[in-house]
Design a protein around this nucleic acid. Structure first.
Lengths: 198, 198, 198, 198
DNA sequence: CTCTAAGCGAGACGGTACGTCACGTCTTTAA
DNA sequence: TTAAAGACGTGACGTACCGTCTCGCTTAGAG
């Protein structure tokens, strides 16, 4: 995220203050009503300090969100793929809906629709690592004979995750998003290995 | 979309010019780079005329997009539900990706993440009518015994449409979106009626 | 004032409503804060009806002020020129300061600084008639040997009236304006006929 | 004039460009036809930079006029009060009528009729200093026995200056204003000390 | 253990667009 | 055939932020 992290002299204090202010403001006022000026003011920082290290408001908020999320994309593995998927998807929806992440996520994704660089950063730092973890778990389920082997696991990932984001971005409401985990069973039906044809 | 369509004194000429200008500008420059001033200028119209009838840029572009789409949400019905779904979903993705709608749609949806009124308008004028058509077709397929009767058809709609929008909004690229119709077969597998249990 | 008074079909009701509304609004809000839209609204009249008969807000207010003033510019004549001048000038300042005319007058004159046509109308309908009355009285005083005959009476008029307007327009405050009548005596001293040279 | 002249970060370049542009535009087009946008454009400056330092167009033009006038309100003192007054009043009228100041002055004063803060600023920066100089000269003339001692000198100032502004603001025309100096003699007659009573 | 260059806060600057107001004109509806 | 009502094109308003650009100040690392 940091365009030029080379400098050793960068003030960690300022960086933290900016990310904290950004996250707090977005959570409280909504992404659209937050300005870089307001972030700078709340962080007790000059605007140029923000522009020096980030390209846009979206970039700041994405990094703030990343810090909030942490690096933990690990997928549970109890041996029961259906249970593990349900667990994980429930966790994701909770974080998306009730968590403090919600506003930041919607804001960043809205912005990213018109900002390819921001979209790229989001995918690289959040989406793709998390997809990779999911695929790894699905691969092991395929190897265990719990899932069909003739459907690519990246397609499976899409099938499991799509409903969450579909409902989230198209305004179906928090309850609908929260119930996304219920679809896991229906999707799984189509992905079970079958002796009796295809 | 028009907040106050009651007045019969409204100038249809101005309305058309505004919608045409908005759609053209968004298609050519991208949603984010279009301003209401530019729309007014290109339409040969005063800014107040725009603000008199629309709440925001998003509202104008949504209405322009609606006019472009027309009212036709009809679902094909050949008797073969798999074929019909593939046909329809292919059509939707084409329109979303290659069509002139693309930029407007992304822009409006990005905006709608932070504008509940805009989201509501989108759902009422586009999404819900189109879901209703799909459900009607699925209902008839259920009645014909082509689909399981124990999964609500609104859930089925989500399963079929989610991948498109998921790939579209999360930056998977046009090719991935275009291939969304391929998932229909996999989803259908889980929705087939089964005498032999699950 | 009426640019085109030819039409016999002009609505006297509308004219009265407009002038009353204009005068009332200017008195209550001050000239600068009154708009033609507001006058039309309060008068229950369409804007074009105002524009049909007057060139500008200043013209409306000037006419309203004229109606309020009436046609009476008569100068008292008790035979004592000093007393008559004091009487008249006191009356003028009272009307200017305490009267309902005050706001309208300041507004119109402020506007007239940049609107020659308005200035001309003001002079023709108010200033010049009132100067003429004053000169007539001064002429009779000269004839009666109460004033020097070698100073033109129009200059005398200026000397008597100038302080009022000077203090009024240059912001000396209402009290200073009100005391303008006190200067009559001092000015008169220089205008008395003198046997002993000049 | 500057509402907040404290900041030492203020750009003198911008200030000069704004005042120069304002004065030039007012001189060429007349006060009423000048907009803050036009001043900003001609000065090569953003509108906010004007609003940061001035309350209104009138305030800008007043300051521009002040700079044009300079601080020199000195009154001549040759020992002959009649000659000095004529000299000074001729100078004032010349500056008012023919000078580049003319349009700015009329515009500001017209505005000031409805803007007390502007009137106050005008009085403090221009009118009162200039009155003070005049009174000082009159005081010395009184002390020299050239003027009556029983008329307050501030009243005398009014008598001498009133005709100029009266004729100027009430539309008597440039020639009448220019001839205002002629009245000095007549006014002086009433202000001469008299042993022989009055 | 200075010294000097960086990164910093602060905030003014030239801009762009905002959303609003009132203008003066034009069109439509009802009396 | 007026006049009310009010939508229209226009242009300026005053404001909010943008992203850039000085400024001094501080502060840490290289000499």
């Amino acid at each position: 995220m940091t365009p030029d992290p080379k400098s050793e002299r960068r003030s960690e204090r300022a960086r933290r203050a900016i990310l904290d202010a950004a996250f707090d403001l977005v959570s409280r006022k909504g992404f659209a009503k937050v300005t870089i000026e307001a972030i700078a003011a709340q962080a007790g920082v000059g605007k140029p300090t923000i522009y020096r290290w980030w390209r846009s408001k979206g970039a700041v908020v994405l990094e703030a969100m990343n810090e909030e999320l942490g690096d933990d994309f690990a997928f549970p593995d109890t041996g029961d793929i259906a249970a593990d998927l349900t667990t994980q998807i429930t966790a994701v929806t909770q974080r998306l809906i009730t968590g403090r992440i919600s506003e930041a996520f919607k804001g960043v994704m809205g912005e990213a629709q018109n900002d390819p660089a921001l979209m790229k950063a989001f995918r690289e730092t959040i989406l793709e690592p998390s997809i990779a973890e999911c695929r790894a778990r699905l691969d092991s389920a395929v190897a265990a004979g719990q899932l069909r082997s003739d459907v690519p696991t990246d397609v499976m990932v899409d099938l499991f995750y799509a409903p969450i984001h579909y409902r989230h971005f198209l305004g179906f409401g928090d309850d609908a998003v929260r119930r996304s985990a219920d679809l896991v069973q229906d999707v799984l039906l189509g992905l079970q290995p079958r002796s009796d044809a295809g």
